[in-house]
């Protein structure tokens, strides 16, 4: 379980001489085990910062961030991140990229390659093991990123707008594929998105954030049934939640100068 209590993060004022930027203020929420939480909010609401704090990549000034009661002080084997711009090593092939996390953690070559091949097959990239990232489409590259994250067998997946750099059709396919993978093994997921459809389609709950400074406005339950059928977007419940999100997000935009 991920517990965030009264979290405050300010980016320092050292370099530019001006005052610091308060990115997050008194953030309070929980993510239960095996829960899929999507996070949505306008630009500048600190969602990426929040994810990085949970990932253990940046520090914070006040509050508690803990995983199963252990405070987060850095990255850990129970968490893995999927990045918006894929973050693949351009000089290594698909197999080498997927084994990266395992290699860093000291797995033997045979073990890591066996595991990697299994996952490459799972994400539908069998046969592409020797290709370089530049030979792959965006969607395929992100599937490599996903395979890499899953290879280290994390309990928690932290996804930073993973489909944001992709075209709509690829995005929808990957959403379906992600849900299929998730149904097999329900990891805890924190998924940042800009898309309201994506937030409602994927999540058990949506966390709505407001900007400047970043705060949690509301945690919205999504009582839609699992597994989500492909035509879920037409259901009245889906539309209702989506519209509710948009009303709130729109109001936030017009508040800004």
């Amino acid at each position: 379980m991920i517990r965030v209590k009264n979290l405050t993060k300010e980016f320092g004022s050292m370099d530019n001489g001006g005052g610091g930027v308060l990115a997050l203020s008194s953030i309070d929420f929980e993510v239960r085990d095996n829960e899929f939480v999507t996070v949505i909010g306008p630009s500048g609401c600190g969602k990426t910062t929040l994810l990085r704090i949970i990932a253990g990549l940046i520090s914070y000034q006040h509050g508690e961030v803990s995983i199963d009661s252990h405070p987060v002080v850095g990255p850990g084997p129970e968490r893995a991140v999927v990045f918006q711009n894929f973050a693949l090593l351009p000089w290594t092939d698909v197999l080498g990229n997927v084994t990266f996390g395992l290699d860093v953690r000291g797995a033997t070559k045979n073990d890591s390659q066996a595991k990697a091949k299994e996952l490459i097959k799972l994400v539908g990239l069998e046969g592409f093991e020797r290709r370089l990232p530049k030979e792959l489409s965006g969607g395929m590259q992100q599937r490599v990123g996903l395979a890499r994250a899953l290879a280290v067998n994390p309990r928690i997946l932290l996804m930073d707008e993973p489909f944001g750099a992709l075209d709509e059709q690829t995005r929808r396919l990957l959403q379906e594929q992600l849900l299929q993978l998730w149904e097999r093994e329900r990891k805890t997921v924190v998924f940042i998105t800009h898309s309201m459809e994506e937030a409602v389609m994927l999540g058990d709950r949506v966390m709505l954030m407001t900007p400047r400074p970043g705060k949690v406005k509301e945690m919205i339950d999504i009582p839609l049934k699992r597994p989500r059928p492909p035509d879920i977007e037409k259901s009245a419940a889906f539309i209702e939640i989506k519209e509710y999100l948009w009303e709130n997000l729109r109001a936030m935009q017009t508040d800004q100068p």
């Binding site: 990255p75 893995a80 990045f83 711009n85 973050a87 090593l89 860093v104 280290v152």
Partner: peptide, 13 residues
């Protein structure tokens, strides 16, 4: 790309 270094750190490098 700084993201690459961040990615490596996220895996505990």
């Amino acid at each position: 790309e700084p993201t690459l270094i961040e990615m490596a750190k996220s895996f505990g490098a």
